[in-house]
Amino acid sequence: MMNEKTKIWMNKAMHSVMLSCDRATFFITKKEYVKLSCKENLQLKMHLMGCKLCRSFNEQNAILSEKIETLKHDSPPAELSSEKKVEIQETLDKTI
């Protein structure tokens, strides 16, 4: 049996290591942009081992990052309306 002091110590230790899902998804987002510190990385890995929902968030967030990467380089082609083209051209002509 653990004595009371050990229990309190264990509890504190758990809290300093274990992340909440809120915090875990914060780190998952952060690692899409920068490298996490060793401590953050370890905390995240431990959380992910035990949390299926955050594992899903991690995978889906990576899928989104990949799609966003495509969006970044090729803007989907769009056309300026002909009315707006005429309007811009007229404004430019006035200036020129």
């Binding site: 989907p76 300026l80 309306s81 707006k84 811009i88 430019l92």
Partner: peptide, 29 residues
């Protein structure tokens, strides 16, 4: 020739960043 040659290209870029058609148009102008 700016409007003719680059209008749609500029608008596509603006729309990919702003997503609001009217705002994107005005920014091109």
């Amino acid at each position: 020739r700016w409007v003719k040659e680059h209008g749609d290209y500029l608008f596509s870029y603006a729309l990919s960043r702003i997503s609001k058609k009217e705002v994107a148009e005005d920014l091109v102008q």
